[in-house]
Design a protein around this nucleic acid. Sequence first.
DNA 1: TCGCCGCGCTAATACGTATTAGCATCTATG
DNA 2: CATAGATGCTAATACGTATTAGCGCGGCGA
Lengths: 348, 348
Amino acid sequence: MTAPLRRVTQRDIARMAGVSQATVSLVLNNRTDAEVRIAPETRDRVLRVIAETGYAADPVARRLASRFNRIIGVFTYEPAFPSGSRDFFHPFLLGIEEYAERVGCDLLLFTSAPVVDGRRRIFHQDNRLRLADGCILLGREIDGAELQRLNGDGYPYVAVGRRNDAGGPVPYVGADYASAVSRLVEAALRHGHRRLTYVGMGMTAESSQDRRQGFDAAATTAESARQVSTAPGAADATLDDLLADGSTAAFVEDFATAVALAAAARRRGLTVPGDLSIVTLGDPTVPVPTDIVFTGFRIPREEMGRQSVEVLTGVIDGSAGGLQQRLLPCELVEGSTLGTPDPAVDRR
Amino acid sequence: MTAPLRRVTQRDIARMAGVSQATVSLVLNNRTDAEVRIAPETRDRVLRVIAETGYAADPVARRLASRFNRIIGVFTYEPAFPSGSRDFFHPFLLGIEEYAERVGCDLLLFTSAPVVDGRRRIFHQDNRLRLADGCILLGREIDGAELQRLNGDGYPYVAVGRRNDAGGPVPYVGADYASAVSRLVEAALRHGHRRLTYVGMGMTAESSQDRRQGFDAAATTAESARQVSTAPGAADATLDDLLADGSTAAFVEDFATAVALAAAARRRGLTVPGDLSIVTLGDPTVPVPTDIVFTGFRIPREEMGRQSVEVLTGVIDGSAGGLQQRLLPCELVEGSTLGTPDPAVDRR
DNA sequence: TCGCCGCGCTAATACGTATTAGCATCTATG
DNA sequence: CATAGATGCTAATACGTATTAGCGCGGCGA
């Protein structure tokens, strides 16, 4: 066994090269300012010793002395990850990783954050946020109080997904749900649908607000446009409700609900989209097997991940000017579940 | 805008509580040794100020001063990730994350490591390994020279997957491919197969060595047991070769190759497993659509991830005794592609 | 000869925490 | 009343790097 060998430090290098520790640091950082001059032969000598010893600067000390780490924190807000939820977040992480690699940053996943009252907390006993230069916040719902605290502390961060102000504007990279939903509503109206229903999950998250707002904004010319709430497993009741209302198109917030609704309709001998059009408003958050291609839209998750890193690095080094809020467009999916309503019956 | 506000430090807390910085540190770390005593009322006063200010110790300074970080590094060795390869690695990461969460560690992904000559390098200009207390190495092939350097530096690490010695034994958590392949060979022999072929990819990785070794060890009683190499897209040539040899069972290293081989057999009107049994030796490394359930085994990837963290934490704090090398058993998959060879023909 | 300036480097200090030796102060004991 | 021991805290230092003020030296002009 080798002895518990001490790290090679700049002092060691300095001694070997016959210079001071400061000189080593200057050479290492390639400082060539007018203020600082190192003779080429000295520089070479130091570099040679560095190469021989395989010395590498301790990033921790570096971070303590200077300001930056080149570490980007990733805080995943979802409580105790059901494995399906992970699949939903994975694309964000891919994008984040890709861009982090491009700008030469490492990624710190705050897996140590404890879960209190069913949700992870950023701020707790042994808060480790400052390990990173800044942080990306990922999660369906983010605690406004914590955002406020981040703003107050002046800690650089960016949320993935639009967020309401919290003691100041929140930097984010979100998806433009409102306009995507609006475009789907307009498509339904062009198909001749007159009675529309938004089937939500009773969520208060901004992502949900935006979808509902997009629905309302575009549905003004419909004969009827209403919003209802459903729950997992209540597909049959929801279907009853749609039929009773005479709705011909359902705009379903949750992908799994859409699948269940389509299955319920089939069981009753109804056709989709003939008897009922079903539009989905986003990618599955849990894996749901289905062979139907639903009409709806796709959340640009990888791109959101990439751009969140881009925005964050701007916030960190202050190069970003004012407000850092971006909404990316969602790509519509031409599926088979939005069609012309069957004129033969008025099921009311 | 708030001014670029300075971080709250222990000195600030100390001033507010009317004690010294050292006292704050002692209170914070709950030091109650016989050597160190703090009056309960002092302790309370300090704790109250800490709570009021929301102070959190700077982990960087902490790391510099003491020895540990509670950060576990993850180095993914594969070059420039094809997205399919990511799917293969994802389960490992899930396991790693799960266990890291349990022991209260954060995870640092070394995304900044540069790719040189088509592979990522641990050691380079601005090596950041020391940000973490230790590191998990992930990848099909790992550079022996780098392992050697890690061993030489005394840096705590663990490889996922068995590794040959590199200037000393390498700590790892691997899958017991050899025994899994042996059991499959034995099953084939029990089914009456006498001529077996191992279809490899010509790889030198340890994972490949182990499989071949397991094959050879169990196939001694076969009439013929040989190894051939194939390549992506060469399924037809490989099938020709198998038929010419009179092999009735193919043990296929790469999942995608197995799928291609089965498809080629079908195209020629051969049945699987009637005319040819096909056994797969591990999970797909790239996503391959197939509706066949292949006989083979499953790599316990999540468990490998979990246990690698467990081993690493042991190596870091020195609590682990001697050699840290684990091989986990692979679960056999009872598929439909291994059967009794059709006795009607001898296709040689 | 003196003063000045540019060059090449170093000494000193800061970053924020953990640790340890040791200084007062108080209590118990003979 | 002197002394020993326990108690509660602090001063000093270390960790490894980055930064900056400034020192010594040689050359050059006056």
